[in-house]
Design a protein around this nucleic acid. Structure first.
Lengths: 153, 153
DNA sequence: TATATTTAAGACAAATTAGTCTTTAATAAA
DNA sequence: TTTATTAAAGACTAATTTGTCTTAAATATA
């Protein structure tokens, strides 16, 4: 698995947030957890990591919740990944050798360095806005059960 | 982490095996575990998975050990990965949605499908033989401490 | 045949990750 | 000011992965 479960849930939640994004509208974590079929408490903790990274902010009390702290076109998927799993997957040796790099490479380093850079580029060049647009256009899926259309009701 | 620790150790061990490969020579797991700095018992279990997959075979008793069951140029890294972690990483949805694919894709599917295919190609097109050759030529590293040259003594 | 050497197998323990539950704090609205 | 609603925080449990230990089985050699 490339991304941890926590990270996967974080990305799903971020995509959801971008779908329903309005500048001053807070989304209830409970509601989101139910729509995305993610445990409420687990999702809460994950979103805390994301808010601590400055990507979202939260508001307590009635009608409180979570909102993106910037416009979805300013947030790339890699920021979410970084907030939860960190950047290790894009920098580490594929066979886990400490210090593997141009200086003292492992046998797979040269090929892996290319592949992981492409992975990084992919996450870096994908904005939440872009994903929301194509999701709506193509009615893509964000949860096992609901289509995006159903999700946004 | 793309590959599990067990898988990482399995790949390191396979690369080691290809370095010292001779058709009828068994390599002691104990010796390999010491050279690669991997727990002997853990490595033993990992190698069992690899032998069960038919990629290596083992021999008990004095001068026993492990050997590749085919020539290193007939074994690709992906076979080792498959034997331990399975092929899920090359087939699964990056955000873990069951059934994600061309039919009912998640927002990241299109980009991810390309990236994961490139990953798969990389592992598929890399043979143990090829890695052994370049490792010897460039004195690459297979363990945190020892260079390939030191490893092969 | 007895002994030493080696892998196989499986029980067990430790560490990490995933997930749950309870209590606290902030805020809106009655 | 009281109550209801919401996120924050942290303790706790469960599951999975990683790693260790012990015993059994196979084999070579004396």
């Amino acid at each position: 698995m490339l991304l941890s479960k926590a990270c996967i849930y974080g990305v799903r939640a971020s995509l959801y947030m971008s779908l329903v994004y309005q500048k001053d509208r807070y989304i209830s974590i409970r509601e989101m957890s139910e729509k995305l079929n993610i445990s409420f408490h687990f999702l809460t903790k994950i979103l805390q990591q994301i808010t601590h990274a400055g990507l979202m902010h939260s508001y307590k009390g009635p009608n409180g919740g979570i909102n993106l702290s910037k416009d979805p076109n300013e947030i790339t998927i890699i920021k979410i990944v970084d907030a939860i799993d960190g950047m290790a997957v894009f920098t580490e040796c594929v066979i886990g050798l400490p210090g593997c790099g141009r200086n003292k490479p492992c046998p797979l380093h040269e090929k892996w360095a290319v592949a992981r850079q492409e992975l990084q580029d992919m996450f870096e060049n994908t904005t939440l806005h872009e994903m929301a647009i194509s999701s709506k256009k193509l009615n893509l899926r964000l949860s096992d059960e609901l289509s995006i259309e159903e999700l946004m009701i």
